[in-house]
Amino acid sequence: MPLAERKRRQEAWMTRTVQLTLFATAREAVGASRLERAVPSTGVRLDTLLESIAEEHPRLRPILRNARVARNGEYVVGKRLRVRPGDEIAIHPPYSGG
């Protein structure tokens, strides 16, 4: 893991936050490529976290339905998983590379 990233995660853990990175249409819907959310040290369910963000950014809701979600570089299967301070969540709308 690159140093800058490790540092960011360490800081995130200290401040008890989860970092979200938004790509493509998700970024456009929110108007930012990064979001930070404070979470309890016991963690929070991923679907709860995403729901609270969708409430603040309603344009994100339809995008989330089709998006893949990754935690710390691994795709998440089932959104009941708990995210904890220091975790990095990425929102991936359908891919369009090539």
């Binding site: 790509f23 990425a90 991936h92 709308p93 891919y95 369009s96 590379g97 090539g98």
Partner: peptide
């Protein structure tokens, strides 16, 4: 195209309104 997290966004020349528009992403 299906499995790698890379995205493209269209960029169009100035339209009739004279505004540069960034439009919707094409479906996959």
């Amino acid at each position: 195209k299906r499995e790698v997290p890379i995205w493209k966004t269209d960029r169009w020349a100035r339209g009739p309104t004279g505004r540069r528009r960034r439009t919707r992403r094409r479906p996959r």
